[in-house]
Structure formats: C-alpha cells, structure tokens
Design a protein around this nucleic acid. Structure first.
Lengths: 111, 111
DNA sequence: TTGATTTGTCCAACAATGTTGGGATAACGT
DNA sequence: ACGTTATCCCAACATTGTTGGACAAATCAA
C-alpha cells in the first residue's frame, strides 16, 4: 500500500502512453500500440518488447485486458485489447510532473 | 557508431537533467545532484543510486568528471564534479521529443 | 594528537526493466 | 487441405535501478 504512485521505467511509460493514443481511435492491442510507439518515438521497437511490457504492466495492475471477438478478415484472429487503469494514470502524471520539473530547472540553450 | 542517439533509462535521464540543473549555480557533484533530484521529483532517492548512475553515464561517455580541490570547511573533502557531454544533450533532446510526441497524442481529461 | 564530527565517495549484491528473434496459434481464402 | 495473413507470447540475455552501508578525507575541540 504505497502512498507514492508506482514508479515507471522509460519504456513502460511510453507503452502506457501509446495505449492511450491508440485507444482513442479503436481498441488498443499489440500491433496497434507497437505502430503508435514507433511512429511517435521515431525509433525501432521490437514487437516482443511491446508484448513483454504490456504483460508486465497488466501484472502490476496498470493495464487491464480482454480478448476481442475475431474480425472477419483474413488472418483476423482475436486481439488482446488493453485499457489503462486509474493507478496507471496517476503514475503517468507523476512521471510527467517529475520530468517537467527537471526540464524547467535547465537553462541550457537548445535543450 | 549508432546513428540514433543512445537511448536513456528513466533514471539516467533524470540524473542527467539534475546535473544540468545543479550545474548552473555551482559545480554538479554527487550530493548536489542528489538533492536537486529529490527536490524536483518529490521522491526519495538513495544516494548510492545516484553515484551508480553517474558512474555508468560517465562510462557511456554521457558525462565527464574531474576532482575539485577540497574546500576549507568542516568535512569539505574533494568532490567529483560532472559535466554533461554533447551526446548526452542529443540523447536528452531525443527522449524529450519522444515523450512529448506521445503526450500530444493523448486526449484524456486530466492527463 | 587523538578522537568525534561532518561531508562526501563508492561498492556488492540484488531486483526490476529492456531487448531479441523466433515459434506458436488462429483465423481466412482457395 | 493447404498456404497465407495477423497476432500473440516465450526463453534467454543485457542493461538499469535500488539498497544499505563501508570507507576516506577534511575540520574541530580538548
């Protein structure tokens, strides 16, 4: 029963945000989230890394998931869809705050 | 010889920023950086964690250091002072960009 | 000059996170 | 039935994060 929000790793943070992003247009699931992540961070991300992290985040109670019904398209199997939980939002806010506070303290041209 | 900037962990990122912050007023060294970090992130940080990370960052070429001459005050022994390097600035910028891009994609009230 | 006090560094061991590549599974179309 | 597509998930390993405390160097006070 920690009073502080759970602290997030860098990648965890990004995955959570990607779930939120992807979740606006449709259900957020592996492929989805992976794409969003690559697009927004401009860097190569291994699919496996995303699934690993989604999994860990769910175990920590920062995500919840359910299986969708398969869509009737070639190869369209059931997707595992994710929602971010309240504690996750708290953790995200805290991380953001912390980073913004640090950035605010930096007076270096071009940073 | 990577083209992408080195990717930073969450804590590494914060330590680098704290070095920049602390470095404006005076030399940035362990105690200094530790204090800045705690103050700005509002969370408890073990001293050892900071030294570990400073060390690793230097080995990766993201920080450089030198030993100061001792100050003539009680207990004032020589400090190991740090400067962030160019590659570190690049990495910080990239991390910041990536996170901002993700945050921008989130339309969740109060995030 | 000896010991107490203060400031500061650094380590060993462990826990958690990040990364890779590929193998497994389930749906579809023909 | 079979190949093709989309998706999930694992095992193994590499890197980061965390803890608590031991050690070192300087000052002060008796």
């Amino acid at each position: 029963m920690s009073l502080e929000p759970i602290s997030l790793g860098e990648f965890e943070q990004m995955v959570l945000l990607a779930v939120l992003c992807a979740g606006h247009e449709a259900d957020a699931y592996g492929v989805n989230v992976h794409a969003e992540l690559q697009a927004r961070t401009k860097r190569r991300v291994a699919r496996g890394a995303v699934y690993m992290t989604l999994d860990r985040l769910e175990k920590k109670g920062l995500l919840s998931s359910y299986l969708s019904v398969p869509t009737p398209e070639r190869g369209g199997r059931a997707k595992r869809c994710y929602r971010v939980t309240k504690p996750a939002l708290d953790a995200l806010r805290a991380s953001r705050r912390a980073l913004l506070n640090l950035w605010d303290g930096v007076r270096t041209p071009g940073i």
